[in-house]
Design a protein around this nucleic acid. Sequence first.
DNA 1: CGATGTGTTGACCGGGTTCAAACAATGTGG
DNA 2: CCACATTGTTTGAACCCGGTCAACACATCG
Lengths: 269, 269
Amino acid sequence: MYAVETPSASNVQPTLRTVRSNADEPRRRSAWKESEMTAACERITRQLQLLRDEVAIQRRVLHTGDKIYQAGQAFGALHVLHSGCFKTVNVAADGREQVVGLHFKGDWLGFDGIARGRYGCDAVAMDTGEVWSISYDALLQAAARQPALLAALHDAMSREISRDRDSLLSLCTLSADARVADFLRYWAESLAQRGLRSDHITLRMTRAEIGNYLGMTLETVSRALSRMASEGLIRFADKSRRDILIPDVGGLMTFVEGCAPASRKVTLQ
Amino acid sequence: MYAVETPSASNVQPTLRTVRSNADEPRRRSAWKESEMTAACERITRQLQLLRDEVAIQRRVLHTGDKIYQAGQAFGALHVLHSGCFKTVNVAADGREQVVGLHFKGDWLGFDGIARGRYGCDAVAMDTGEVWSISYDALLQAAARQPALLAALHDAMSREISRDRDSLLSLCTLSADARVADFLRYWAESLAQRGLRSDHITLRMTRAEIGNYLGMTLETVSRALSRMASEGLIRFADKSRRDILIPDVGGLMTFVEGCAPASRKVTLQ
DNA sequence: CGATGTGTTGACCGGGTTCAAACAATGTGG
DNA sequence: CCACATTGTTTGAACCCGGTCAACACATCG
């Protein structure tokens, strides 16, 4: 089992290593339960193996800006990411457009097409990545004889719903600075769950995209990042300012909670 | 087929009528395609019939404040609303709580429990309503011999995902006033899709709850409603100020679009 | 080199929050 | 019946976070 399979250059350990070996970094606080991260990693690997074994897959390599599918296009297949990172963009009737999701290896895309028969979003590559496309009908047929496939499908849909709700929670209850911190935390967590190093992330989004995703302007994103950098929560790796070092993810989490004003925690009723 | 099955007193036509008969209200602009509304209504009715015929259902009547399930509780069943309106409330680890969804007849609840094995939200009745609970395992077994059940399940999950994304879009791109208008529009649309009258809605939420759902304070909700009332977009039915008359839903929609500043429509890249 | 896209920072302003006060609806107990 | 408490709503006034506009820095690329 490889911990690293992404073709993209960054977010990848220089040397192949197992997921467990981080004893060489003793000062870094373990932000997440490591067992949960490896469990997530194994689940993702198992799902991909299951798909490879049990259904017909059409593989594609996409590059930055390429779209897996577009809003309005007839739905026929679901898409599982094998590598790279992608965004989903929702477009309103009046032209407002909104990044509604970030997706990494193992994530499924296209669920919103099932009910309407048409995709509701654009799915855009932010990176070079490989996509496995699976005919929805074929998947259902395969699932009939292999229940694990159905379980995997439902698992992915369920997670998508949970994730969307967490996004709503962050948007509604957190200040701008906290949302940016939470965004970094989420990205790092996503990498950790995939067995990739999570203390160094390469944002493949402009400040404008991040701002759109987080419901704020690009200036606010920039200021929030600068503030976090000056406080030592993050560091900019190179001068491009898209490579971000996170010395302590736990610090991000406490920052998020510290930003949340007490009033926002008010209970309903 | 009954257009009205809700035990709650309001949102219900005084006389039984078929879904199509609103020729008696000629001045009201048809805000939605009527064919879409009746199609949605028929789909919901068919789904409920399908469930009644094909799987074991446990029926329960809940009253305001009762919970179908709570966050953290072990997942075992999905729940389909037969009547009433419900909210789902997400609670963060640090205590922030957030209304993340509103649900009406025909909606499924509990999807977020599938992946984690525990529900991630509270599902709370805002009204007297009947819930049909279906063991998830039993549902899967039944779905194996009756594919329409599986289709219904996936349809519901897919819609949930689309709906959450629309919420994100509104939250990020609309001003406070527009969000309140869009909230009313959504509620009215939900009623219309269920064959109920949509020009008179009884909010079963306090201003604080609405504000929480929309990511703003209760004062802002109150001001937005007052403003809309003074502009004639809505009228307060009785003195409780929770019954709202919507003379023209189309007006709400144009108001939403009018509120969206051009800058928010800026395209990514 | 200029052109272009992206990021940073400052100054200003306004929408929405916060704080406060008053009012309305409802219930409770004497 | 009224007095009183409770909960929800409205409205005003002051404040402030984040949006807006603008200028500049910096990188890449023809």
